[in-house]
Design a protein around this nucleic acid. Sequence first.
RNA 1: GCUCUCGUAGUUCAAUGGAUAGAACGCAGGUUUGCGGAACCUGCGAUGUAGGUUCGAUUCCUACCGAGAGCACCA
Length: 538
Amino acid sequence: MLSEKIKTWLGDERAQVMPTENLANGDYASNLALVTKQDASVLKARLEQNLLPEIEKIEVAGGFLNFFLKPEYFAQNLQNITEQQDKFGWNNNLEQKKIIVEYTDPNPFKEFHIGHLMSNAIGESISRLIEANNAEVKRACYQGDVGLHVAKAIWGYKKGGKGGFEFGKAYALGSSAYENEEKAKEEIQNINQKIYDRSDPEINEIYDLGRGKSLENFLLIYEKLDTDFDFFFFESETGELGKKIVEENVGGIFEKSENAVVFHAEKFDAKLHTRVYITAQGLPTYEAKELGLHLKKSQVFPFDRSLIITANEQDGVFRVGLAALRQLDPELADKTQHLSHGMLRLPTGKMSSRTGDVITAESLIAEVKEKVLEKMPARAGGEEKDEQVAEQVAVGAIKYAILKQAPGRDVIFDFAKSLSFEGDSGPYLQYTYARAKSVLAKANSGSEKVNLENLELSDTVRLLARFPEIVARASAAYAPQLLLNYLINLASSFNSFYAQNKIIGGPEEKSRLALTQAVAQVMKNGLWLLGIQAPEKM
RNA sequence: GCUCUCGUAGUUCAAUGGAUAGAACGCAGGUUUGCGGAACCUGCGAUGUAGGUUCGAUUCCUACCGAGAGCACCA
């Protein structure tokens, strides 16, 4: 990374070196003079005695030292892009590291809703960003195929007339009955027990049907989302393990209380609270299963780091859960990190699968796809509109809308308002890529080689050079929005260049084609890191 | 009540303690002989309030106001 090289050259730990926000202030800037309270002009004069080969000149402004890079540096960078292609922007910061990332986590018998979509978009992008640091990444999806929610769904399914009845609706039915009717509550708890011990053939049948149908449906959605998992974990496998761990530590870490087994987290950290691990019925709760899952993960994939991505409504559970894990296995706890994202909210408030007030991922994608198809021009002699491309654009728009904010904040999801195909949007990036590819296709194929004679020092060329730096930062901070912001700037700068300059024809054709090709490559790589597909035509 | 998030243009979102707070939508106006108008250009417009730390605060600290989430047998 050039920023590190510059910092070493400056020779002061206190100095920060960063890419400038405004290219008028050079390519990199340092606050060295400000933090050390030295005269910036004096520093400049001293540094000029021994300029770094990449640096063309230094300017002083507002107390900052601004570094402008040489044209040769940018030319070399374009060269790197053509050579490294899909790997341009990658680094070795996490070489040899094994990292497992858990995200999405939909529950069979319940809807795959837009909240899962959010978890998936963020998790997939973070996974890819980590992969770009050359870590070995495994993607994990954890699915609750046992537990009270399943019992509620099955109860509702039995009441609701079975055949053709949707499990999402069945869950809503069962859930409200559980809260409002004493008798139903008992029946549901009864079913819950039977699910665990598989003692009732009728329930087994409904269970197997529902579980199979759900999982099949999830796979179809993953295909649309261009996401795939290395491991699928199920609560049915972690429950027993978790229960065993808890039972072995009753009296030490866990305690009996009102017939249940609990963890008094407040004993270890006053800000935490007690949670139940084994119910009075003797069944493991989500918390116990989570413990089993930590162990299970480390068994199937001995990781250096384990990331778990969920909605922030689970922050409390994870704080307590990790405190419990710390008591059991400090080393494992150190390697485990919970990252949370905000919730997708409807303008009407919180989405609730308990009342059936949910937007499924499937319906959202379908709806957006319709809009994309409407907008898709019947280009070039009435070719048929490409359904697959329309879906890629639709998913790109949705993922972009999710990734553009820093994870952690809630998103008010007003589909009509916030899902744009213009400007700050996924399709804008995809469009920029498709447009660049289209120009390249029109140019003579012989000019594919990079030619850097007369390379203009455009903003675009300067922005291209900092892509690796941005990727490294976005990965380290688990912050896809940094990359996304960069890509918008790059696209905007290229589109602006495009509007003002003719690429094909004229004396600069070769270097402009090289620029176009580099933009296309970086856009493709960047979109990949966001988990967004880059169709060549749209 | 306790714990944790979060308050930035009319709206939806950015900004490792740094420069003139960056986009987009919307609004007003404009761009064709030139390769994709899902584009480009111009304009209007914002850090909840009050203190504190700092050379420098959207960012850190305190209080207040406001919104959301979680808090014993759901996940």
